[in-house]
């Protein structure tokens, strides 16, 4: 079985998500995650351990890339990192106000997100902002089990003998 976990907002209930991903893996499920916020190393490792993948969608529509060259100046890199860090609370605030339809639009137009969504047997909206995405997926895929919340996903897992 293959589960798709959709994270809609910038807030992340990390520990319950990590526990659920591990539970899916322990039950022999594959867990794919589509997120609008970067997941930390432990979460990514847990997803990969299930054989799943993480699709990160940035609000700008740009893909995260690995820098091809090392920064020319360490001082400049430090300044940039500092600015990014300071901008983080404002970015979170802006993302927090981003409407659900904007998330849905981003996901349904991303080639990788659509690929994992097509392969999923169960889709779960992990937070409130992901509700519309999963609702739309459910309308497009009559065979998809679409649930809200990690608790409901755990129940589905139990139902399928996980």
């Amino acid at each position: 079985m293959r589960a798709l976990l959709v994270l809609g907002g910038p807030r992340l209930a990390r520990d319950p998500l990590l526990q659920q991903v591990r539970a899916l893996g322990a039950a022999g499920w594959q867990a794919d995650v589509v997120s609008f916020k970067a997941l930390d190393e432990e979460l990514r490792a847990a997803v990969h351990a299930t054989g799943g993948e993480v699709v990160l969608l940035l609000p700008t529509g740009l893909r995260p890339t690995v820098p091809a060259l090392a920064p020319r100046s360490a001082a400049l890199a430090r300044v940039v990192r500092g600015l990014v860090r300071r901008a983080e609370p404002y970015r979170t605030k802006v993302l927090g106000r981003m409407p659900g339809w904007a998330y849905a639009r981003r996901l349904l137009h991303d080639i990788d997100a659509v690929r994992v969504a097509r392969a999923a047997d169960v889709a779960a909206a992990v937070d409130r902002d992901a509700g519309l995405v999963v609702w739309k997926l459910a309308r497009r895929r009559p065979d998809l089990t679409a649930v809200n919340g990690l608790g409901a996903l755990a129940n589905v897992m139990t139902r399928y003998g996980g």
Binding site: G100, R128, L132, V134, W135, K136, V147, N148, A152
Partner: peptide, 17 residues
């Protein structure tokens, strides 16, 4: 707490708050 997203009305999906 309706867990089945298919049962949601459109208003809930588009404007959850």
């Amino acid at each position: 707490l309706e867990p089945d997203v298919r049962q949601w009305p459109a208003l809930r999906a588009y404007a959850p708050r």
